[in-house]
Design a protein around this nucleic acid. Structure first.
Lengths: 148, 148
DNA sequence: ACTTCATATGATAATGATTATCATATGGTA
DNA sequence: TACCATATGATAATCATTATCATATGAAGT
């Protein structure tokens, strides 16, 4: 198992270990960046810039590789706001958070902590928002594909 | 106004005219392709290939430009299924359709014709799906940005 | 601590989607 | 039918992401 004291949750360290991933300097830097920016949605480029403070030699390819593997382990969540690039955020197990509100004027992204979709839009209108559109994607195994 | 008989809805023709767009051969071809593939989600490349049957010299730049302007007029709807590219579909005014179900195994995309989000997932489970995740984006003006 | 070696890294080239450029063509109007 | 602003096609440029490959580095075992 990995040695040393890190600023990263033990649970994450254990997941990495179990999956056979080594806890390298770049991965440590990226995990710290993601933790320090919990709740934000960062692009690979933004992660690179922030991670350079901790691991000056880190390259963009490593950032992409690392973000990808962390996403596949459900440590990160990968999403897009239709800007032609992806954004990543630390997964939050307690709160089911993938409900994003995007202002068409200023582009500000807010998250809605709401597990029920019902009356969500009314809820937003009550808060002073003006809903113009929504886009829901449900990821579900279709009947033919359900894993046994 | 435009003259001639087209296989395209009069309403769309009028929208184009009102917005000052000319009904060119490439645009006609693209609109016909989108109409013939109503309910499908096509990439720019797919639109190009299909449109070549009607306008052999059409180029990819024109396809992108045309898809973009049709989208800005709400004639098309632009979306992404996180494949690193965009897909376009004819907007359907009668049915509010932007509820996509994506099978993580086979990638099949189904649309859910359901205006109420409530109990949507239960509805899917009843149909034999196994929901694994969802992603909702609501586009709403935030209180500071509401246009007067 | 020291060696080992599979895994990870960084630099960079390659790819793929999309956008910009620009000289030429064309649609709708007068 | 001529005119001219708009649109087009070919192609180069851009941007995000992925692949390649020689070198470096963790973790495990001495």
């Amino acid at each position: 198992m990995f040695k040393g004291v890190f600023k990263i949750d033990k649970k994450i360290i254990e997941s990495l270990d179990k999956a056979g991933y080594r806890l390298t300097q770049p991965r440590k830097a990226i995990l710290e960046v993601m933790k320090e920016n919990k709740g934000q949605h960062l692009t690979a480029e933004e992660v690179l810039l922030a991670a350079r403070d901790k691991a000056p030699n880190i390259g963009i390819a490593t950032v992409y590789r690392c973000l990808e593997s962390l996403t596949s382990m459900d440590i990160l969540y990968k999403t897009t706001f239709d800007e032609g690039k992806y954004r990543y955020e630390l997964s939050d197990e307690e709160i089911h958070r993938h409900h994003h509100v995007i202002c068409p004027a200023c582009g500000k992204i807010s998250e809605v902590e709401e597990d029920l979709l019902c009356s969500l839009e009314q809820h937003l209108e009550d808060q002073g928002y003006e809903v113009v559109d929504h886009h829901l994607k449900v990821y579900a195994y279709c009947p033919e594909c359900i894993p046994k």
